[in-house]
Design a protein around this nucleic acid. Structure first.
Lengths: 113, 113
DNA sequence: ATCATACGCAACCGCCTAGTTGCGTGTCGA
DNA sequence: TCGACACGCAACTAGGCGGTTGCGTATGAT
């Protein structure tokens, strides 16, 4: 039976770690809702500093979840949901493994009964 | 247009926070692979203490990702992947919002050009 | 009865990190 | 040219968290 390990410690870690923080998750939501946004723009509606938002956006960019594009004196961020697929695969794999185990258990019970 | 907010700060936060730690993620993998496992059992193959594993399993249980069942002197944990669906929905929603924005942008460009 | 096993609880430590403040720099508009 | 805006970088702080150690307790085996 194949193991559950899908990525073995690659990019999925960074994605989940980035999404682990509620603030960063809501940031992703905000950017996704606006299509694109800047740090100061987002900080206006948040109870935190611009620098805080910028740092979080930097973390999200490191995880590949957002993309920064500087034009003139402002840097706009937009969502790049591609890395989410890796996370999705991981979850699906775990669920599948669980289902498989469950099916095996059912088979075992059916045989023994 | 509907916002991106799917859960508004409910259980999804806990799920992502729980899955944010690589150690906990590999724990979920290990439990899923074995079908069920105890803390000491898992700690045997890991470079950490039993208490560490137990604490992590507790966190996972709080997030609803595993379920503890004590029988006799041992408490076995099994994966309950139901909360994963919420996380899945969140990701899908974000991706959808992004796509929607992209489509709107394309429409806008098509209209203006 | 006695010993070993498996667990839970609590205190403690070290690290990481989110957030703030302060400052310097480049860019747009008047 | 000069002020305002947007940003980046660096130093600092406070809190959270993963991990360990130590201990008490209940269960199973001999």
């Amino acid at each position: 039976m194949a193991g559950v390990r899908v990525d073995g410690g690659g990019r999925v870690d960074r994605v989940f770690a980035a999404l682990g923080d509620p603030g960063r998750r809501s940031l992703v939501e905000a950017v996704a809702a606006r299509g694109s946004a800047t740090a100061t723009e987002l900080a206006r509606d948040l109870p935190v500093t611009r620098q805080a938002v910028a740092k979080q956006l930097g973390a999200l960019a490191d995880a590949g979840l957002v993309r920064a594009t500087r034009t003139g004196r402002e840097t706009r961020y937009e969502v790049t949901p591609a890395p989410l697929e890796d996370a999705l695969e991981w979850m699906v794999a775990v669920g599948a493994a669980w289902d498989e185990r469950l099916a095996a258990l059912r088979r075992s019970l059916a045989t023994k009964s």
